[in-house]
């Protein structure tokens, strides 16, 4: 079997695959000790797969923490891994929007998940999942509750998407003016969707558009994105959208093992 471990800013995801089948996976918060969180995620995934670490023939690490883990194997960016994973889950996908905690990626891919072009949000939280997380936290709401509030809203109050901190100030100001919380929260989702749409347009959006990452779990964000982009595809039901880069990493580990069997995993 082959492992893909995606050490992201918010969560660490480990996936084990064999014969293009997911045998097991696990997601843990990344915290501040990436070595520990990636090891825990992998160990738990192995348990769920009823496997043994010695059965892992190859491993690829990805995400911002890909270099600091001591798992061995190859470090490949989540851009390449997300493209590969997305193409595996949705072969018709040509534009990938991977909405993560720290960054949002728009990736244009060809057949087989070859990356043709990509764009990442600039150095600002306003175009990422952190935008919603931060404001939800300041309002004392959980992310799920936050998204649900927006889904139910018929109104959409415009919120500036230039800066997370300024948006937060705007939210507080609107609340103190007695404006509808649901409308404000929907406006926030709409603002984030607008930023993501702007990023994707740099690549000239091509159908099919697959949305993955933690952002794909937010129904309100998906609705707002759909209003801007049109048809949106999500990973198949039963596949957590956060796993897409880790799935791609496991697939690449297998491909590299096949082409260079002696160069892959350093695992015992």
């Amino acid at each position: 079997m082959f492992a893909g471990v995606d050490i992201g800013s918010t969560s660490t995801k480990a996936v084990l695959m064999s014969d293009s089948r997911i045998l097991g996976y696990h997601i843990v918060p990344s915290g501040s000790n990436f070595r520990q969180s990636s090891q825990v995620a992998l160990d738990e995934a192995i348990k769920k797969a009823n496997g043994d670490s010695r059965d892992i023939a190859g491993i690829v690490t990805t995400g911002y923490g890909r270099y600091i883990t001591e798992m061995g194997g190859e470090a490949i960016t989540e851009i390449t891994c997300a493209a590969r994973g997305a193409s595996f889950l949705c072969p018709g996908a040509r534009t990938i929007l991977d909405i993560g905690g720290q960054d949002t990626k728009a990736i244009k891919i060809g057949k087989g998940g070859r990356v043709l072009d990509f764009a990442l949000n600039d150095k600002c939280a306003a175009g990422t999942g952190r935008f919603l997380e931060r404001i939800a936290t300041s309002l004392g709401l959980g992310l799920d509750e936050f998204a649900t509030l927006a889904v139910g809203s018929m109104t959409k109050l415009p919120i500036s998407s230039t800066c997370t901190v300024f948006a937060e100030t705007e939210v507080i100001s609107r609340i103190s003016n007695g404006e509808s919380l649901e409308g404000i929260v929907r406006g926030l989702h709409s603002a984030l969707a607008g930023r993501i749409y702007g990023l994707a347009r740099r690549l000239k959006i091509q159908e099919e558009v697959l949305v993955c990452g933690g952002g794909a779990l937010n129904a309100s964000l998906i609705r707002e994105l759909g209003d801007l982009i049109g048809d949106i595809t999500l990973p198949p039901s039963g596949t957590d959208p956060r796993l897409v880069p880790a799935i791609g990493a496991a697939l690449i580990a297998k491909e590299h093992y096949v082409s260079h069997p002696l160069k892959t995993s350093n695992l015992p």
Binding site: Y64, T77, I79, T80, V115, F118, L120
Partner: peptide, 13 residues
Amino acid sequence: ADIMNRIDGFLEM
């Protein structure tokens, strides 16, 4: 981290 991630992605491409 941001710059090198973009460069690595580009080199992989």
